[in-house]
Design a protein around this nucleic acid. Sequence first.
DNA 1: TTGTATGCGTTATCAG
DNA 2: CTGATAACGCATACAA
Lengths: 356, 356
Amino acid sequence: MNVRRATIADVARLAGVAASTASVVFSGKTPVSDATRARVVAAAEQLGYTGPDPRAASLRRGRSGIVGVVIGDRLQNAFRDPVTTVMLDGLAEGMAEQDVGLLLLRDGAESGGPALRSAPADAFVLVGCSGRLADSLDAIRGRGIPVVVIEGDAGEGVPQIRLDNREAQAVVARHVRDLGHERVALVTLQASVPAQAGWIADGATIDVDVTRDRLAGARDVFPDAPAFAAGASSIDQGYAAAEAVLAGPGPHPTAILAQSDLLAVGVIRAVQDAGMVVPDDVSVTGFDGVWVDGVAPLTLTTMVQPAAEKGRAAGAAISAMLAGAEPESMLLSSAFRPGNTTGPAPISRGEPASSV
Amino acid sequence: MNVRRATIADVARLAGVAASTASVVFSGKTPVSDATRARVVAAAEQLGYTGPDPRAASLRRGRSGIVGVVIGDRLQNAFRDPVTTVMLDGLAEGMAEQDVGLLLLRDGAESGGPALRSAPADAFVLVGCSGRLADSLDAIRGRGIPVVVIEGDAGEGVPQIRLDNREAQAVVARHVRDLGHERVALVTLQASVPAQAGWIADGATIDVDVTRDRLAGARDVFPDAPAFAAGASSIDQGYAAAEAVLAGPGPHPTAILAQSDLLAVGVIRAVQDAGMVVPDDVSVTGFDGVWVDGVAPLTLTTMVQPAAEKGRAAGAAISAMLAGAEPESMLLSSAFRPGNTTGPAPISRGEPASSV
DNA sequence: TTGTATGCGTTATCAG
DNA sequence: CTGATAACGCATACAA
């Protein structure tokens, strides 16, 4: 290991050719005579030169082969939520053609933080990091780099991959209403960035698009349903939220609509730990459809969202933009999947619908 | 959006200062008078200059702020396996100090493929991509870049983060033996790269370190236990492997030791679908300890490995190496966690221990 | 087929 | 505190 690494100039010198010739041997962009190639390769081997320095090459070519993926608050939560990982999965697949790597970035406390401004990425995918989204977007667009937004409002000119969140959540809500439920509570995804668990006040502004849209969908059917925002999409947070909901004044709700499957699992456990039965005493619904285990022998009633497809679509859009095209935004839809965590509302004790 | 993006030279010109001065305004490495700074900032804003081009900066500085993480075969499997995501989690945490991004790379079909050679990373973390590991390692070391290996044999001079796989698996095996089991079958993680599901022949070479070591641990206790290699660490593959195991000739095994929790869950389902009861007819064990759901109301008997700690340790090692230190390798240990998927061996029908 | 010249956009260094 | 200079390592257009 020499102190200084060999450069292509060193190789060329040793091989007795011009640097450009040596360069061509590695890039293969231009024909080279076998004799020359052999000399260059030999020289490279002798010097321990393994190929062009990626930093220099990317400066010269103007491409780094990296796509930045900005995932919410913390990488931690992102990895823990199967929806995100499935989506990343799809993203990787959607860009398999290009030989690019995915650079995972979190949209940290410092909005539009250093990473966004200084990451050597050819393009970015922003994932549901609303609220802070505007800043992040500015940081990126300022760089004149292609960007696609998944589940967030990006404004003009930015391709977006969205879900029919409002309508989808309304479908679930109607299912619950049709079962006769009237006292319904909602457990939402995080409402603000950074997340802050707690009741969502009437008329409160909700930064996060997904949360806002799904909440709207539920309220389309149950206008007065109280909503508790979880701190993250996790079982624990769902449990805590349900505890808060059940501890509220008045009779407990007969149905709890959670905005993610993970939250729903937590809700179910909290309900059970409170000595009640799902769905006899309380019906519970989720959202996502990728989380299948954890409530056995129950099967969660939920909306199945095309998570992998979201990623694939984003990947395809990025590919298109890198190729100079202008991809369209995309609206994907979810499918209702009934399970047995919902059932008929328990016989009313004559209580009117009320806030919990 | 101009055709050409503004450079720091443009900004400097407009501000009437030298390029180096403008640069300093952005980097903050040297004091600048307020007046000058203001002029530069104004010029930058006017030109839409949002900061130095990362590619040029990293060429100049010799650092890109990126750490490459090479995960097995497919990103897909990596994301699907909670062990990996938890590990990544820890890795991100272990490097939180540095403002670096994680570049996810797969060690694709083309060994030591382009990504490894051409990714502008300051360091690499290789995760259990053995077999192909040697090639990848060469590709990286040739570049003279710090590298840490998690769960793989990297040879001299490369810090490694390893688990006590062999001993840990032996602990589980002894637990099973102590319960009276004699006819035991093993379901292993992938044995080769790329993965190929199937029985592991006697004396076959196993490329993947983790698989080999855990297998050895099990064989320390059950020298003749037949082993079936799964195609990946997933429930489905576990299910398929167990089907193969149960379909074998002779009496079915009374215990199946799986090398991961996901596999174990699949095994359990296959056993149940075959009309048998866990653990009465067949005991099942896992490995990992991060997967808690999916077999309710059973609790998996498993080894809990410090997955997050693995990542953290790797992150710390990378940080140290980037700072010029030479971190030591690390051996982490797992803890036995008994569950109720194991129980006493069913009453023997006088069959001798045999291969299935 | 090979070589020459040029610049990609920065920033470290050092002299003023 | 500011500016001039010189790389960083490579790849492309073009000429030979």
